[in-house]
């Protein structure tokens, strides 16, 4: 009886897991399959024509990269510096580091459309940037900041205490210890977090529509408006009749980029854990007992 239940449960769990994998695999392959036929050199190198129905997406790729660049330039130094402070602090309940971390948790969960509202009110209107690459990039910077800080802080904390003891016993200053010992040891983990942040920024749509805008032209400067790839997918699918083909192609390209980025993050993460402990990241200890 008991073993029958056991088998039944195994079967249910197994089929649920298989269903999840099958559906997720279906989505992924479907997107790639539908779009891959339209991908060509012309698609990458030419500007869109006929509201995007023909031609390519070259200026859109340029805008996407410019927005990403602005976001990273703003967010990376701030996140590194903030994470350095948080990683050195014990997060005592209601201490400043604890409060700062909780604020960042909430910031991480703010819906992207709300970031769009904020970015529009703050960067576009209050700071007078208008719909621009700069406003969009800075809005994205606010969005990815909590992820970057979180992963960087984890990376810094994963550096073995041995290193800190050795550094302290040699009378090294905290500044030297951080830049010469902790930071280099945590670098792969930090890079993995950075790559994830880039992925999140590339995927973002709702926060950009009302900050970076949706002009398909190539932006002349950072103050010009530009359309990201994700916004292009939305516009082609929803607002342009018969735009599906180009939407699919852009989606396939975006997903392919994200796949590469994901692979990069994984190899960096495994490099990080190998560097610090010589083990793989998976901790499967509890498995053997069940």
């Amino acid at each position: 009886m008991n073993s029958l239940t056991d088998r039944l449960v195994s079967l249910m769990i197994g089929s649920a897991a298989a269903l999840v994998a099958a559906v997720l695999g279906w989505v992924l392959l479907d997107i790639l399959y539908r779009g891959i036929g339209d991908l060509s050199w012309e698609f990458l190198a030419q500007p869109p024509e006929d509201a995007g129905r023909s031609g390519g997406i070259a200026p859109i790729i340029v805008s996407t990269m410019l927005i990403l660049m602005v976001a990273l330039i703003a967010a990376v130094p701030l996140s590194l510096s903030a994470a350095a402070a948080l990683a050195q602090q014990r997060h005592r309940r209601f201490g400043w580091a604890w409060i700062a971390s909780r604020c960042l948790d909430v910031l991480a969960a703010v819906p992207s459309v709300v970031f769009g509202l904020f970015g529009n009110a703050f960067f576009c209107v209050a700071l007078g940037m208008g719909y621009s690459i700069l406003a969009g990039g800075l809005t994205l910077a606010c969005m990815i900041l909590p992820i970057l800080i979180h992963t960087t802080e984890h990376g810094l904390r994963a550096v073995p205490a041995d290193y800190h003891y050795a550094a302290a016993s040699l009378g090294l200053s905290r500044t030297t210890t951080f830049f010469r010992i902790t930071l280099p040891a945590a670098l792969p983990a930090i890079a993995a977090g950075l790559v994830l942040g880039i992925g999140r920024a590339l995927a973002e749509t709702a926060a950009l529509i009302f900050t970076a805008g949706y002009v398909t032209r190539q932006p002349e400067s950072l103050m010009g408006s530009g359309r990201s790839m994700s916004v292009h997918i939305f516009d082609m699918a929803m607002n342009v009749p018969a735009g599906d083909g180009r939407a699919n192609a852009t989606a396939a390209l975006l997903v392919a980029m994200l796949l590469i980025i994901n692979a990069a993050a994984m190899s960096l993460a495994s490099k990080a854990s190998a560097k610090l402990s010589g083990q793989t990241a998976e901790d499967m200890n509890s498995r053997q007992y069940v």
């Binding site: 073995p160 041995d162 290193y163 003891y165 050795a166 550094a167 016993s169 010469r180 010992i181 280099p184 040891a185 560097k275």
Partner: peptide, 13 residues
Amino acid sequence: VGMIFQKPNPFAM
């Protein structure tokens, strides 16, 4: 005052 630890802990350099 130099200090030596139980587990050798050279820096990763």
